[in-house]
């Protein structure tokens, strides 16, 4: 259980994290979602006691992180897989971490096996691929068999096999009843992994809800109706207070009404419906809508950056 209350981190005038309150519960994967620069890493660093909050507080199992009796047995964290001394072998890297919490050498070998690095355990980690470094970072997080796991962008830069491996691992850790808190700036990564979402933008909390509610609640459900009389249907639904738009010919997109009500209105007005179904708003879309105002660095579309006139070139 991780609890943040009014958590705030300011650097000068800018707030990297702004009055965040949330609770991360055991037995599920909680996704921590936000555009780059939204304050996800800073929040995780404050959870781990690496950075001090400007205001507010965050506790792990009811205590500030630094007060945990045996931190590795309670929390395993992977913030940056490349943050290891490259001159040290994988085994020695894990051993020096294990020693602080009196974790045995045997456990070091066990986690090396678990993440599939046993055959390179004696190699210096400088030569590791990103995927191998990621596995080493996960091994370090699992050393103390902790109840809480914190991963910062764990699949960044991984190949598809590595991504599937980490997803499966996170799912199975949560299924064992552990607390799994994982950040990402890509919602697509969360779609198959997270049960719960905490969404932040510019350091502020934008959403804290279950995955299903997050999708449903995004912009109201959209209902798609196919009809030979789109104009008539549109008028009838608008009269009932819905907003409508026409996409493809013969398709009316309806917001603000359920499909049952749409069917009733069509029937009452004698309009034929060939098809009627709720449209699934993609998670991606929901996320984009929610964070549209809180992205720090907007790219321009390539069209906009074209020179306005080409005629002067000889």
């Amino acid at each position: 259980m991780i609890e943040a209350r009014g958590l705030t981190k300011r650097y000068g005038a800018t707030a990297a994290v702004d009055d965040l309150s949330f609770t991360i519960r055991p037995g599920m994967v909680t996704g921590f979602l936000g555009p780059n620069g939204a304050g996800k890493t800073t929040t995780m660093r404050m959870i781990l006691g690496l950075d001090y909050p400007t205001a507010g507080m965050v506790t792990v199992n009811g205590k500030p992180y630094a007060k945990l009796a045996s931190p590795m047995r309670e929390v395993g964290a992977l913030l940056d897989a490349r943050a290891v001394h490259g001159g040290r072998s994988a085994r020695n890297h894990l051993l020096c971490l294990a020693r602080t919490n009196h974790i045995s050498r045997r456990r070091v070998d066990a986690v090396l096996d678990l993440v599939g690095l046993a055959n390179v355990a004696g190699k210096r980690s400088r030569g590791f691929s990103l995927g191998m470094s990621q596995r080493l970072g996960i091994a370090a997080a699992l050393l103390g068999d902790p109840e809480i796991l914190i991963f910062d962008e764990p699949v960044n830069g991984l190949d598809p096999e590595g991504i599937v491996w980490i997803r499966t691992l996170m799912r199975s850790l949560a299924a064992e009843g552990r607390t799994v808190f994982v950040s990402s700036h890509l919602i697509s990564e969360m779609e198959n992994t997270a049960d719960h979402l905490i969404v932040v933008g510019r350091g502020r909390l934008l959403a804290d809800s279950g995955m299903a509610e997050f999708i449903a609640g995004s912009s109201g459900q959209v209902v798609l109706a196919r009809t030979p009389q789109p104009d008539a249907l549109g008028r009838a639904l608008n009269a009932a207070g819905a907003t409508t738009s026409t996409g493809e010919p013969g398709i009316v997109q309806v917001r603000g009404l359920t499909e049952d009500v749409v069917a009733d209105i069509a029937f009452a007005n004698g309009i034929r419906l060939n098809h009627l179904a709720p449209a699934r708003v993609s998670l991606e879309q929901a996320f984009m809508e929610l964070t549209a105002d809180s992205v720090d660095y907007h790219g321009q579309s390539p069209v906009d950056t074209q020179p306005a006139h080409n005629g002067s070139e000889a």
Partner: peptide, 19 residues
Amino acid sequence: TAEYSTGMMRTSLTVMPRR
């Protein structure tokens, strides 16, 4: 300093937060 340049310090402080 090598712990700062490599980033290892963050890992070290995570496993031993008593600074």
